[in-house]
């Protein structure tokens, strides 16, 4: 099975990745090969089997509503590729 160029492009768009034409074709083949292998799952009938919700059956883990230490503005922005006026800066977002 090969994933079509259109599908690869659609998924790339959702992933915010871009590929050249050659890369797109190759990605389609590689994904197809993995999905062919994944098809071994179809050999097992899972009708009515519960999907694993959580591997350990742990539930109800909560924290108390108590205020803790926040980062300073400088710490929060320390890794920012671009910052201005105490904020992260991105290319203009059109509303």
């Amino acid at each position: 099975m090969k994933i079509s160029n259109e599908e690869v492009t659609y998924v790339a768009d959702l992933s915010r990745l871009e590929f050249s034409e050659a890369e797109t074709a190759r990605m389609g083949e590689e994904l197809g090969a993995v999905l062919d292998y994944v098809a071994t799952l179809n050999a097992v009938d899972t009708t009515g089997v519960k999907a694993t919700e959580h591997i350990l059956n742990v539930q109800n883990v909560f924290r108390e509503d108590e205020v803790g230490q926040s980062l300073s503005n400088e710490e929060a922005l320390a890794n920012a590729p671009e910052a201005e006026s105490g904020c992260f800066k991105v290319p203009r977002v059109i509303e």
Binding site: A76, E82, G86, C87, F88, K89, P91, R92, V93
Partner: peptide, 12 residues
């Protein structure tokens, strides 16, 4: 925050 022409600012 949409201020200025060259970018948008993000407050988390």
């Amino acid at each position: 925050i949409h201020e200025g022409a060259d970018g948008t600012l993000v407050d988390v």
